[in-house]
């Protein structure tokens, strides 16, 4: 005990200048332990990795008639992959931020010398890792379905959907900074479910309702994914990318501003 205490004198009391390596170490530790935490909550991880795969196999390969039109299999591949990506980003961020905020953990981090954005960057890294896991599982699964996309096709969808998790993280983050931990799951669902049904990704909407999906970021990401798999798409790719970037930046910005002010 003594050696530690002796070392703990005030010789280090001069304002410490911290080398960039130490700051990087803080980011790395934060990301590492966020990942460890997530992997120790298998229920959450499995839900978003396994469910899309099971649904894709059922509707895209097992169900009678699913082989008739390869376009259906492509649609189902991008659609179900997208549900996993959206869900992991929105639920992962929304619920964890709301809980940590309520438990005072974010206030503690603000009072500690934690780099202010380290915990957000850590959560984004974990969301990207989960997205990779979801897409890898989908790519491997797709090889079992002769009617579905080929490996290069599904890999290019993965290339679109993996970074595509970020705008959904931003929406989850925004919700997590506004509502209580108990209400977070409900509010995230309020966004998640309508987005699935109204984004033209799994259920085709009648012509009279074609304007609705335009307001959903899921619609724009789905169009990019369809483009990657070689399917016909609507609208310009650049516009879809722009909408997703704006959603990510605006919701992250609003959430960060609130966290800095209110905690």
């Amino acid at each position: 005990m003594n050696s530690a205490l002796v070392a703990m004198n005030l010789e280090n009391a001069a304002a410490p200048s911290v080398p960039a390596a130490r700051t990087f170490a803080a980011y790395r530790a934060e990301a590492r332990y966020e990942l460890v935490r997530t992997l120790r909550m298998p229920a959450f991880t499995i839900a978003f990795v396994v469910v899309p795969v099971v649904l894709y196999l059922f509707f895209g390969a097992v169900m009678p008639g699913s082989h008739a039109n390869p376009q259906v299999a492509y649609h189902l591949f991008t659609g179900f992959a997208l549900t996993g990506i959206m869900g992991s980003g929105m639920f992962g961020f929304g619920m964890s931020i709301a809980t940590e905020r309520e438990q005072g953990l974010l206030t503690l981090k603000r009072s500690l010398p934690a780099p202010p954005l380290a915990f957000l960057v850590a959560k984004m890294c974990v969301a990207l890792v989960l997205a990779v896991l979801i897409m890898l599982t989908m790519v491997v699964t797709a090889t079992f379905n002769a009617a579905g996309p080929t490996v290069p096709q599904s890999l290019s969808v993965a290339g679109v959907l993996i970074p595509g998790v970020l705008p959904f993280c931003a929406i989850g983050l925004f919700i997590g900074t506004r509502v209580s931990a108990k209400a977070a799951a409900g509010f995230v669902n309020l966004c998640y479910l309508p987005m699935i049904y109204l984004s033209d990704m799994l259920i085709p909407l009648p012509g009279s309702m074609q304007a609705i999906p335009q307001i959903s970021p899921a619609y724009h990401l789905n169009q990019l994914a369809l483009g990657a798999v070689g399917m016909p798409t609507q609208g310009s790719m650049l516009m879809h990318v722009a909408v997703l970037v704006v959603v990510a930046v605006v919701f992250t910005g609003l959430a960060v501003r609130r966290l800095a002010r209110v905690g």
């Binding site: 280090n12 410490p16 911290v18 940590e100 438990q103 005072g104 953990l105 009072s111 500690l112």
Partner: peptide, 16 residues
């Protein structure tokens, strides 16, 4: 943040 690098904090009611 440089100032806070010299403090340690133990808060009440924090859930790690």
């Amino acid at each position: 943040i440089d100032t806070r690098r010299r403090i340690g904090v133990m808060m009440q009611d924090v859930g790690l």
